[in-house]
Simulated assay, not measured.
Amino acid sequence: MKVVAPLLLAVMWTFPSQEVGDSAKAELAYRNNCMICHGPALEGGFGPALSHVGSRKTKAQIVRQIQNGGVLMPAFRTQLDAGTIQVLAEWLFAKK
């Protein structure tokens, strides 16, 4: 039992917060679903730039945009689960 406690602490220090996991999940979702239109650095391309989207839209608006799409943007409500959409929206909302 004495070996388990230090190992558990080492694992907890390796992954200090859920936020790190959420950021990685959001970046992966962006890379796999959004980057083709919005660019690798959120600079835009076929779709608009998202580098400062958090200063233009609320998190709720970003969630709705991801879920429902837009004029040329497809809806992702069936491609991404609700948790991934929330994490992605939070990540994008932080871009101000």
Rank of each mutant, 00 (worst) to 15 (best):
M1V: 10
V3Q: 05
A5R: 09
A5Q: 06
A5S: 06
P6Q: 00
A10T: 02
A10G: 02
A10H: 00
A10L: 05
A10S: 00
V11S: 07
V11C: 12
V11I: 13
M12S: 03
M12T: 04
W13P: 00
T14H: 11
T14A: 14
F15D: 04
F15S: 08
F15C: 09
F15Q: 08
F15Y: 14
S17R: 10
S17P: 06
S17Y: 10
S17K: 07
E19R: 08
G21K: 05
D22W: 12
D22Q: 15
D22L: 10
S23A: 09
S23T: 11
S23G: 09
A24R: 10
A24D: 03
K25P: 00
K25C: 09
A26H: 04
E27N: 12
E27I: 04
L28S: 07
L28T: 07
A29F: 07
Y30T: 00
Y30M: 03
Y30L: 02
Y30W: 07
N32G: 06
N32R: 14
N32F: 09
N32T: 10
N33K: 06
M35I: 00
C37N: 07
H38C: 08
H38D: 06
P40S: 14
P40C: 02
P40T: 11
P40E: 14
A41L: 10
L42V: 01
L42M: 13
E43H: 05
G44P: 10
G45A: 04
F46V: 08
G47C: 05
P48K: 05
A49S: 15
L50R: 06
L50N: 08
L50T: 08
L50G: 07
S51C: 03
H52T: 14
H52I: 06
H52P: 00
S55C: 03
R56K: 15
R56A: 10
K57Y: 13
T58I: 08
K59M: 08
A60F: 06
A60Q: 15
A60S: 14
Q61S: 09
V63R: 07
R64T: 12
Q65S: 15
Q67M: 14
N68S: 03
G69F: 01
V71Q: 13
M73D: 13
M73S: 15
P74E: 00
P74V: 00
A75T: 01
F76S: 09
F76R: 10
F76A: 05
F76D: 04
F76K: 07
R77Y: 08
R77Q: 08
T78I: 02
L80G: 01
L80P: 03
D81C: 03
A82D: 12
A82G: 01
A82Q: 13
A82I: 03
G83V: 02
G83C: 00
G83P: 01
I85S: 14
I85K: 15
V87E: 01
L88A: 13
A89E: 06
E90I: 03
E90M: 04
L92N: 01
L92G: 02
A94K: 15
K95H: 15
K95V: 05
K96F: 03
K96I: 09
